Deep mutational scan, measured.
Amino acid sequence: MQNSHSGVNQLGGVFVNGRPLPDSTRQKIVELAHSGARPCDISRILQVSNGCVSKILGRYYETGSIRPRAIGGSKPRVATPEVVSKIAQYKRECPSIFAWEIRDRLLSEGVCTNDNIPSVSSINRVLRNLASEKQQMGADGMYDKLRMLNGQTGSWGTRPGWYPGTSVPGQPTQDGCQQQEGGGENTNSISSNGEDSDEAQMRLQLKRKLQRNRTSFTQEQIEALEKEFERTHYPDVFARERLAAKIDLPEARIQVWFSNRRAKWRREEKLRNQRRQASNTPSHIPISSSFSTSVYQPIPQPTTPVSSFTSGSMLGRTDTALTNTYSALPPMPSFTMANNLPMQPPVPSQTSSYSCMLPTSPSVNGRSYDTYTPPHMQTHMNSQPMGTSGTTSTGLISPGVSVPVQVPGSEPDMSQYWPRLQ
């Protein structure tokens, strides 16, 4: 039975679970980093996980050691009161100082060594604690504590007292930064006198190289990059290397530039699409467009005044059976039934097929058609009795279509119309 579990990581490298990497692998990681390889490249070359490479390099940059820390136990506290007071002093002298600059000053002034120097995250935590204590304490208590930490007896009751030896409130920041720059020169002199001055200088240079600022491109470089971006948004590694040799930039910087440029292009394309949609959409909808001609068919113009009344309900007709019959029939052209047409008796099958359309009241044959006459024609229609054979009435077949029909004066039988409509 094995005491430890061995495995293979996602890159194909072998590791022992819970145990640190061998010293030979750690040394190779540092050597590759000094030669300029990126952590992701080191991870692929040595088949070590990216997190492990970053952790080893980060500890090497901070402490200069590649040895693993002790497994188990607690780390001794490195942010001692003396170190905290120095950090507060540096922050007062130059409020814009960075944590890694404070760390360098602690090393250069001999406050800490490589073994007990606090990390950048520890210094940031100390600065946050100082800021929170400043908010919790009152103004007087804060000034007393700062005077105690600074070891001075001057008056701290006013704002300019934060910067000793100065009279203009805006000047101390520059003086403090100048003092810090002077301390940086002392850093070089002190570290050069040490035993491991060369190694420390190499480590600091490598650290500065990794902690780079934003790349500033010249106009020629920007023009070359934009020209390549117009050709393709995704250049391959050969195109990037050719462009890197042409404009004297690292291939990694060119790759990052193209990634950022593609993101910018997507944002601009989104804005262009929004403007295009806004320009195509009308600002207001016309009133006429809300009524579609496919839904509402136009009603033909009436030929006679009587045809303006298109349904039985508008003429005072309360018989719903006839109203439904007229509205359900398709529109037909106007025609006239003459008196000489043969009077065919209704076929029983045809009569039964339209039995649902006729009223059940037996008085329908005896009703006159003056009910369908509009009010303004009552006088004219009353002067001509319906009993004469020459009287013409208008029957409504569908809305908007008038059918003048000659009705025999002897017997106005409704059943004569249905064979004609089939």
Results as ranks from 00 to 15, higher is better:
P39W: 03
I71C: 15
L32N: 02
L107E: 10
M137L: 13
W100D: 05
E101F: 06
V14R: 15
R44Q: 07
R77H: 02
M137N: 10
P76E: 00
P20E: 01
V84P: 03
L130R: 14
N150Y: 04
G13P: 01
S122Q: 00
V78N: 00
G51R: 02
A33Q: 08
L11Y: 13
V14F: 11
A33F: 05
Y61S: 07
D140N: 11
C52N: 02
R59M: 04
E62L: 09
N114V: 13
R77S: 06
N17P: 15
K28F: 07
L106W: 03
L21G: 05
I29N: 02
A70V: 08
R26Y: 01
V16H: 13
F15D: 00
R26F: 00
G72Y: 00
P22I: 02
C112D: 07
R105H: 09
A79L: 13
S24C: 12
L149M: 13
S96G: 09
A70Q: 13
R44S: 06
I45M: 14
I42F: 01
D41L: 04
S119R: 00
P95G: 08
L46F: 04
C112G: 06
N114Q: 12
R103K: 13
C112M: 03
S6G: 10
C112T: 08
R59V: 07
V30Y: 02
S65D: 08
G12R: 03
R92D: 11
P81A: 08
I102P: 01
V120R: 15
P68T: 03
G13I: 00
K75Y: 05
R147G: 11
L107T: 15
A88M: 07
V14S: 13
L127G: 12
A131Q: 10
E109W: 08
G12L: 03
F15R: 06
N116E: 06
N17Q: 15
C94G: 12
G18D: 01
V78K: 15
E31R: 08
S96A: 15
H34R: 12
R147A: 09
V111G: 09
I71M: 13
I102H: 06
N3L: 11
C40P: 04
N3M: 11
R105S: 10
Q135V: 09
S108A: 12
P22Y: 00
E82A: 14
E82Y: 14
P95E: 09
G58I: 15
V111N: 10
G36N: 08
C94A: 13
P81W: 07
G73Q: 01
S65M: 07
T25G: 02
Q47S: 09
A79C: 15
S96R: 14
C40Y: 03
A99E: 00
L106Q: 04
N17H: 15
L107Q: 15
W100E: 03
F15K: 05
L130A: 14
T80Y: 04
N3R: 14
G7P: 08
R103W: 04
V84Y: 05
K86H: 14
A79H: 01
K91N: 05
Q47N: 02
D140Q: 12
S49A: 02
T80M: 04
Q10L: 07
R44M: 05
P20T: 01
Y90L: 13
V120E: 07
K55T: 04
A131T: 07
Q10R: 13
I123M: 03
K75H: 06
F15S: 02
S54R: 03
E62Y: 04
Q135P: 09
N50R: 09
G141Y: 10
V126R: 04
P39S: 09
V14I: 09
L107M: 14
R105N: 09
V8D: 05
T63N: 04
S43I: 00
I71P: 15
I102N: 00
K75G: 02
Y60P: 00
Q2W: 11
K134W: 08
L127F: 07
V83Q: 01
V8G: 04
V120T: 14
Q89N: 14
S43K: 02
A37R: 13
E109D: 09
G51F: 00
S24D: 08
N17Y: 15
L11T: 02
V30G: 01
V83N: 08
S35I: 14
K134Q: 12
I66F: 12
P20W: 02
I42D: 01
I97W: 08
V83D: 02
P22T: 02
K75Q: 05
R147F: 12
D144P: 12
I117S: 11
S6T: 14
Y61A: 10
G138W: 10
D115K: 15
D140R: 13
F15Q: 04
T80N: 05
G72I: 03
G7K: 15
Y143P: 13
S96Y: 12
V48E: 02
E82H: 11
Y143H: 13
N116T: 08
E82P: 15
V78L: 03
Y61K: 15
D104E: 14
Y61Q: 08
N9H: 03
A70I: 07
Q2N: 14
H34V: 09
L146W: 13
R77Y: 04
V48P: 00
G64P: 00
G64V: 03
D104R: 14
R59P: 02
P68G: 00
Y60A: 00
Y90F: 14
R67W: 06
A139R: 13
P22R: 06
G51L: 05
S35W: 10
S43N: 00
V30Q: 05
V84F: 02
C52P: 00
V78F: 04
Q27V: 13
E31S: 08
P81M: 07
L21T: 06
I71K: 14
P68A: 11
D115V: 13
A139P: 09
S65K: 06
T113P: 12
P95Y: 11
K134P: 10
V14L: 09
N116K: 15
E101N: 09
V14D: 04
I71E: 01
K55V: 07
D23T: 11
N124H: 14
F98P: 09
K145Q: 13
R77V: 02
N129M: 07
V14K: 14
V78M: 02
R38T: 03
R19C: 06
P81G: 11
F15H: 04
I29W: 01
S74W: 03
L32I: 04
